[in-house]
Write a protein that binds this DNA or RNA. Structure first.
Length: 727
DNA sequence: ACTGTAGTGATTTTT
DNA sequence: TCACTACAGT
């Protein structure tokens, strides 16, 4: 068999990984080292050279995007599509298993997926029922607790309520009630998908056996991001029977706060017999300056598996470092550079602005808008997460499963139809007392006339609506059904009445939903499934992109987290200051600081040709001014790879003035002789190289002045200053 | 059921 | 600062 197409254009290490025997293998793949390529080629190799059938391959990723890309590239390489190959996310595959074996998993056939938002609402409701004060027991925290337990494979019953403090006991109480509520309404949250899939192996050895026989090899992408339950699921599935190729980079583990266990990558060598270890260290992405800087930063982390990226590429330009005197100035600098680059013919889409937290995007956006630079923000609310879409989906969910409490809660009075909180409360109470779903409770209340007349007829009307929708749409195509639902439910009319452009946008989104239904292709599952149910599951598991693809060439804005896996010609890493990056919430614990450093490493290695690092010496955050020093990560980059961009002084004539008593605090009205500038309310200094840089703003002017202390320490000698535009 | 306001709290978020 | 929430008043 000719396998040259699989092995061409691979370097030695890559080829080593691709052609490794059908045994356990751990591929430590540095940033930009061709990780996906290796994964894809290995699958092709297993099929063409090792003679595995696609049916015997299981490939697991974390994101739908990665799964799609992998499948696409395999097809490209092999020249054929094969649906029998399992390629998907952990959650997607778990869902698939549970759908196929719902009986064994003790689920009902039409179980629905509870997304993060529904989960929060449900927990809020339960906490309220248990009389927990919301300020004391924030729902977010409870959700965090529950998910963390599930990620560790622990059910409420596994946690001894006798043990532990008040906190733990309360959490377990809610956890228990939450489990019951999910059970009752046939809902499964994200973590539950994984946990149930794991339990499926534990409680049904015959099924486990079946899959062990089926799969010849398992491949796992982004292994450093697996959490306990995902790891356990893989480990049990593989046993001694199935071999695994795990690909990952411990230096890019940035989801520890979501339960990812970086140790899994070390644990692999212990749990899976005698794995072959391959390191991919040649980088094909960045210039050597960028790469060396990244290496230098990450070298400060302890306990790494050890890996040093190198490149045959050019040294390239140095990294530009710019310290703006505030976030406006920082943004102005970034936009100036972008304008210049675009003038020189660069595509805007080759430029990315990366920041630590979403709140930083705003200043950047404003600056981009001022200069008419098109941009696109990643992250934020995704299509299927939008309110109006979720409402429409809730109606559709009710058609599949009347006992979907989360869906009922969402739309029973949206649009308003006179079912107030009192009525809903009564329903909830009834449901709780009788251990039934809200749907059940409501219909029992209608039948037994347990409600005041007005509420009763309102509720009756709602039931009629749902039943009528169901009847009307039985024979319809998915898109027609969606269209029917959003019209007849009154959602469209509801948003039409909304004032402002918001309502219009929502209607457009609803229409977009109908279009999405039109082009939806159901996954060819083995068993017969309703297209509607399939569509709904897909919407929950793959929330879609935040924005529809715009054709206009735009600068890319995103958090460092969402930049993982991407690359750009030019990258601006902004807000690189102590307190923000590393974030102040992460500096106290060494482990979390290291994760921040890995995030920095991820950021640096996104850049192919040119990297800018910027900061703001003062920044308005949560309403008050903060004064920042450059991030420790910047200091970890050897100066030989850095250039500091400084404002050019327009005047270079030494002048001196009295040193204020407290240099870091604001001080008032110092005139700088012969410059016409007086110091304003805010002053900040930071130390770079030779002198001290002070930023002045006040009286409509701002300036940046480089000063040295005089020998007595009571005077500052101004060496140079530059006027900036009025702010 | 809508509207105004007072209070709060504020990283990151693949599924 | 700002955006979201809860609740009180109409």
């Amino acid at each position: 068999m000719d396998v040259s197409n699989i092995l061409n254009n691979l370097n030695d290490a890559q080829r080593d990984a691709v052609t490794g025997a059908l045994d356990n293998m751990l591929v430590l793949a540095g940033a930009g080292s061709g990780k996906t390529r290796v994964l894809v080629h290995r699958i092709a190799w297993l099929i063409q050279a090792e003679g595995l059938s696609p049916h015997q391959i299981l490939a697991v990723t974390f994101t739908n995007k990665a799964a799609r890309e992998m499948r696409g590239r395999i097809e490209e390489l092999l020249g054929f599509t094969n649906r029998s190959m399992w390629v998907g996310t952990f959650h997607g595959l778990a869902h698939r298993l549970l759908k196929m074996h719902w009986r064994e998993a003790k689920l009902n056939e039409n179980f629905q997926i509870l997304d993060a938002d529904d989960q929060l609402r449900l927990v809020k409701r339960i906490a309220k029922q248990l009389d927990l004060d919301e300020s004391h027991w924030p729902a977010r925290q409870i959700v965090g607790f529950i998910n963390a337990q599930k990620d560790e494979g622990r059910r409420a019953a596994h946690i001894d309520p006798g043990q532990g403090d008040m906190y733990q006991r309360t959490m377990v109480r809610v956890y228990t009630a939450y489990e019951e509520a999910c059970e009752r309404s046939g809902m499964v949250d994200f973590a539950e998908l994984l946990l149930r899939a794991h339990e499926l192996w534990l409680y049904h050895p015959e099924l486990l056996q079946l899959y062990r026989q089926r799969f010849g090899h398992i491949l796992v992408d982004e292994f450093q991001d697996t959490n306990t339950i995902q790891y356990a699921w893989l480990r049990v599935l593989a046993g001694d029977a199935v071999s695994i190729t795990a690909v990952g980079d411990d230096d890019q583990s940035i989801y520890g706060w979501r339960g990812a266990k970086i140790e899994n990558i070390q644990q692999f060598s212990r749990d899976f017999s005698d794995p072959k270890i391959v390191r991919l260290e040649q980088n094909y992405r960045s210039t050597s300056n960028i790469l060396n800087a990244a290496n230098a930063v990450i070298a400060n982390n302890a306990g790494r598996l050890g890996k040093e990226l190198w490149t045959e590429g050019m040294e390239g330009e140095k990294i530009d470092f710019y310290a703006g005197f505030n976030e406006q100035d920082e943004a102005r600098f970034v936009v100036d550079q972008i304008l210049r680059a675009v003038d020189d013919g660069m595509a805007r889409s080759d430029i990315a602005i990366l920041y630590r937290s979403n709140a930083q995007s705003r200043v950047m956006e404003e600056a981009l808008i001022r200069s008419n630079v098109p941009y696109r923000i990643y992250g934020g609310q995704r299509f299927y997460d939008r309110l109006e879409i979720k409402n429409a989906l809730a109606y559709m969910r009710l058609l599949v499963n009347r006992h979907d409490d989360a869906a009922i809660e969402r739309v029973i009075n949206t649009p308003v139809r006179g079912i107030g909180s009192k009525t809903i409360d009564t329903m909830r109470e009834y449901a709780r007392d009788h251990g039934c779903s809200l749907w059940h409770a409501g219909s029992a209340m209608v039948v037994n006339k347990l409600l005041p007349n007005r509420a009763n007829s309102a509720l009756e009307a709602f039931y009629d609506l749902i039943e009528r929708l169901d009847g009307d749409t039985k024979e319809l195509e998915l898109a027609e059904l969606a269209d029917h639902v959003i019209t007849v439910s009154g959602l469209i009319e509801h948003h039409r009445k909304e004032k402002g452009e918001k309502g219009q946008a929502r209607i457009e989104n609803l229409e977009e939903l109908v279009s999405a239904c039109k082009v939806y292709e159901p996954s060819n599952d083995e068993e017969e499934r309703s297209v509607l149910a399939d569509f709904l599951d897909n919407a929950a598991l793959d929330a879609g992109e935040a924005q529809a693809d715009e054709f206009e060439d735009s600068v890319q804005l995103m958090t460092l987290h969402s930049a993982k896996g991407l690359e750009f010609d030019t990258v601006f890493m902004v807000g690189v200051e102590e307190g923000l990056f590393p974030h102040k919430m992460s500096v106290s614990e060494p482990g979390r600081l290291e994760e921040e450093r890995r995030l920095c490493y991820v950021g640096i290695t996104r850049a192919m040709r040119k990297l800018y690092i910027t900061m703001a010496e003062s920044r308005r955050m949560h309403g008050s001014e903060t004064y920042n020093t450059p991030s420790r990560f910047i200091k970890e980059i050897p100066t030989e790879y850095l250039t500091e961009i400084r404002m050019q002084a327009k005047v270079s004539r030494p002048v001196s003035f009295s040193r204020p008593s407290s240099p870091s605090a604001g001080f008032d009205d110092y005139d700088i002789p012969d410059t016409g500038i007086s110091l304003g309310q805010r002053v900040y200094h930071s130390i770079f190289g030779e002198g001290v840089v002070i930023n002045f703003e006040g009286q409509g002017k701002s300036a940046r002045v480089q000063v040295n202390f005089d020998s007595e320490g009571s005077k500052w000698l101004v060496l140079a200053y530059a006027k900036l535009q009025a702010i």
